[in-house]
Simulated scan of single mutants.
Amino acid sequence: MIRVGLTGWGDHPSLYSGVTASKEKLFDYTGHFLTVEVDTSFYAIPSIENVRKWCENTPEHFSFVVKAYQGMTGHLRGDIPFDSKNDMFNAFIACTNEFKRHGKLAMILAQFPPWFDCQAKNVQYLLYIRQQLKDFEVAIEFRNQTWYADKVVQQTIDFLREHQFIHTICDEPQAGVGSVPFYPEATANKVLVRIHGRNIHGWRNTGNTENWRKVRFLYDYNQEELQQLGQDIKSLQAQVQELFVLFNNNSGQHAAKNAKQLQEILAIKDIGLAPKQLNMFEGEL
């Protein structure tokens, strides 16, 4: 099974029926896709009440990929806003258990920063993550090429497989050590493919701290690129039971369009989408 979706549901105007409330945007989103990445959980751990509302207001077969809180993956500069690391993980686990309780947790995504390179202390930290999140399926996304160096890449894959981590396969610009190659190897019965765009100049140029994210993920895939991605994903599908594809090229509002194009290429027809709201004036003169 292949599920295609987007990172976040609040920034895709082409999917909405003129509504602005977050709850209504999520409902409209579920009329188009059956999976989504909860990217807000990277910045702050959602309340259990909010998670419950999201789960109750989505279709039966909808699923969430929950991004790990930034303090868990080494992104947060300064002190964590918790008394201890255990408190931080426990808060995230309580939140994620609510998704699981509703049967709507696809996996946890632990995305590590570019400075998280392949060295012994970081391998040990991955084992710590595995222990803390032992009751969950966890996808690991690297942002440092050293994990995929010729001499160690097989060890990386073997390590992920041995410890039952889901390998996150990325399509992104090849812009030096702070980016990773598209490496289509599954390590569990699920695999996650994240599509970041190929804006190599934007990926490298992070000098404007206010707008760097908008620049980095500004990219519109052309039909030839999507066709190739489709072929790669079909080949990858043979390795797993479930394959999740998430488009993260949101800056120019290209993600939803590209995701729908890929669905057409893969002949995906999701069953169980929420009913799309009709424009009340549709058909009127």
Rank of each mutant, 00 (worst) to 15 (best):
M1S: 07
R3L: 03
V4R: 06
G8V: 11
G8W: 14
E24W: 01
K25T: 02
K25F: 04
L26T: 04
G31A: 08
H32F: 13
F33A: 00
F33T: 00
F42K: 06
A44K: 10
P46R: 08
P46T: 08
E49H: 12
E49V: 08
K53A: 03
C55G: 01
T58I: 06
P59E: 02
V65P: 04
K67Y: 13
K67N: 07
Y69N: 11
G71C: 01
M72C: 11
L76C: 00
F82R: 05
D87K: 10
D87V: 03
F89D: 00
F92S: 00
A94Q: 09
T96I: 08
N97I: 11
E98S: 02
E98Y: 06
F99E: 03
K100Q: 10
L105M: 04
A106D: 05
L109M: 07
Q111M: 01
P114C: 06
F116R: 10
F116I: 09
D117M: 05
A120E: 15
V123I: 15
L126V: 14
L126C: 14
L127M: 13
Q132L: 06
A139T: 12
I140M: 10
N144M: 03
Q145K: 05
Y148H: 03
D150Q: 02
K151M: 14
V153L: 08
D158M: 07
H163A: 05
I166Y: 12
D171W: 09
P173H: 11
Q174H: 08
G176K: 00
G178F: 06
E185G: 00
K190D: 05
R198S: 09
I200N: 10
W203A: 09
N205H: 15
T206Y: 01
T209E: 12
K214F: 10
K214M: 08
F217C: 02
Y219N: 03
D220K: 15
N222Q: 07
Q223S: 04
E225H: 11
Q227M: 12
L229I: 09
D232F: 12
Q237N: 03
A238P: 00
Q239I: 05
V240L: 03
G252T: 05
Q253D: 10
Q253H: 15
H254T: 09
A256V: 13
K257C: 12
K257R: 15
N258M: 10
I265Q: 15
D270Y: 09
A274C: 08
P275K: 09
Q277M: 15
F281A: 12
